[in-house]
Each structure stands twice: as C-alpha cells, then as structure tokens.
Design a protein around this nucleic acid. Structure first.
Lengths: 153, 153
DNA sequence: CTAGGAGCTAGAGTCGGCTCTAGGTCAACC
DNA sequence: GGTTGACCTAGAGCCGACTCTAGCTCCTAG
C-alpha cells in the first residue's frame, strides 16, 4: 500500500497524461476539474488519482472534439453532485451524436481519399509498365475530379 | 446545352459549396486553386465548373483535417502538370494514414462516451423505478471514472 | 552559498482558419 | 439620378486552445 492515493506533481501528471504543464494550469483555470486541485508545500499543485482519472476522461472528450466550455459545463454538473444526472446524460448524448456524425463524415472523406489514392496508384504503375495499346483510362486531366464518391454529399 | 461550362459568380459558388464568399477569396489568396480564377466584367471572379469540382475535393480534404498548406502543396503539384504523380500519391497516402488514424481514435473515444451514456441511462431509470433492495451499482462517486474502455489507451 | 531545477502567477503571444470592415466600382432598377 | 446589391481590395479582428515569458519562490546538491 504505497502509491494508492499518491499525489502527483504537475510535472508528473504532465508526463503521464501527455499534456503540458501549461495546459494543466490552463485547464484548471478554465474550471475543467471537478474538485479544486490541492496545494502542497509552497503552493504547489498536488494531483490525486481521482484528478488524474477525471483528466483522462477529459482528454478523451477533448480528443473527440468537445470544446472546453462544454467540458467545463460537464465538470460543473458533476461538481454540483447528484440530482442532475439527466443534464449530464443530455450533454453526453449530444456529444455522442456529434462524434457519430463526425465519424460518418470522416468515413466518407476517407472514401474519396482512398479512391484518389487508387487512381494515382493505377496511373503510376501503368506508367512503370509502359504498357501497350490498352487505353490509359479516361478522365484524368490535371487531377482526377471527384468522379466516384463524395458527389452525393 | 445551356449551362455546361457555365461560369458562376462568387456568390453562386458560395451558395452551392456552403463556403462563404470570404472563404472563397481567402482560399484563392492561399493558392488552393489549380488555375487562376478568371475575371469577368469589372474584375469579378468567374468560376468554371472545373474550379467548383476542384473546390469540392478541397472541401472534403479540409473536412478530413488536411491543413491549408498541404492543400496548397497538392494544388501546386497538380498545377505543375504531369510528371509528379508519385509526389501527389505520397501526399494523399500520408493524409489517408492520418485520417485512418483519426477514425480509429475517434471510434475509441466514442466507446467511452457510449459507455458513459449507458451508465447514466441505467442510473436514471433505476431512480425512476425507485427499485427495492438491489444495490444501485458500485463505483459512481461524483461521476463514473473511465472504468471500462479507454483505460488501455 | 550559490547554482539548478521545478513550481508559482499574471498576462502576452501564437497559430490556423476564417470573418469582418472600410472604402470603392459597377450595373440595374424606380 | 439616386439607391440598392453584388462584387472588388487590403488589411484588421476574432476564436479556440494552447504556449510562452517575466519575475518570483522554494528546495536540493555540490
């Protein structure tokens, strides 16, 4: 029972979350932490495991595009304590919807990119083989247009 | 044969691409167009269908996170004409990789979000039913920690 | 006892990607 | 002939999310 509820310095938290110390102070100032970060000797921040866990969630939410104000709002709700679970749920559901939508859009984009990569690959190894009389393939001008996918979106 | 190769005003292009006229001028200034936009009466921009097609591709690339400098680089290559297909391919492949990675990350994030939504849904309809003697579920303090997914990433 | 390293605060700076403003030109309508 | 309304240029401003700086306090090691 050594490092259970061990408290970490800002540098250690930075190291294990991948955030910069600047970002950690910035997040704190922005109110994304649920409980105030404790201070140790000389006013230094001392993060609990809970703080780090929460931070981990925050990082994932941020990575999925949740803006800081929404994150702060969520933190506010959690800080308020039990009783506002519907609001938290609503916030998360909304974010869930946005992430799902973004995934969809991204997948569509990927289709086009994959298509274009394919076209260039074909084009390039047609050149390599410097083939005979079979037509090189139509509709490549300066660049291929959006021909196949993406036209519908 | 009326509007084939019709040329469009900046306003019309804005309308059908969803970009603002400001953004269109900005993109032009940033060199993302392959050929210079023609000018009509009084120096007004006149977009060809090709311009709009290219723009459509650009929009998709941007939507998938390609930064403007990369887009410009791509446009530069296309403008140069045939002979640099390997470079174009490389650029697209790199972007393809990044988009794929981003999709993966986003999917992981979505897992956590889905999980948390699930937890709150359970929690809320347990409350609604105000059930009997079965324990409400452990490990919900202020908020559920990252318990299930995301812990590995 | 001093030099280095980690931390502190407040606030300025940066970057990407637009967005907006000021001041002007046209063409068309009333 | 005056007023819209769409367009023009050059350049300033904005927003989000950090990032960096200056000037300070500690603690520890040499």
């Amino acid at each position: 029972m050594a490092d259970v509820t061990a408290s970490l310095s800002i540098g250690q938290v930075a190291e294990r979350t991948g955030l910069s110390v600047h970002a950690l102070r910035f997040y704190e100032q922005q109110g994304v932490f649920v409980s105030p970060i404790r201070r140790g000797a000389g006013g230094r921040r001392s993060y609990s495991q809970d703080d780090v866990d929460w931070l981990t969630v925050c990082i994932i939410l941020r990575a999925s595009g949740m803006p800081l104000p929404a994150l702060r709002r969520y933190a506010d709700l959690v800080r308020e304590g039990a009783g506002n679970e519907e609001e938290r749920l609503a916030l998360l559901q909304e974010h869930h919807g946005r992430v799902t939508a973004q995934l969809g859009r991204l997948a569509q984009c990927l289709d086009l990119i994959t298509f274009k990569v394919g076209v260039y690959e074909d084009l390039i190894d047609q050149k390599r083989h410097a083939a005979g009389p079979d037509r090189p393939r139509p509709s490549i001008g300066g660049d291929v247009p959006a021909s196949r996918p993406g036209t519908s979106a």
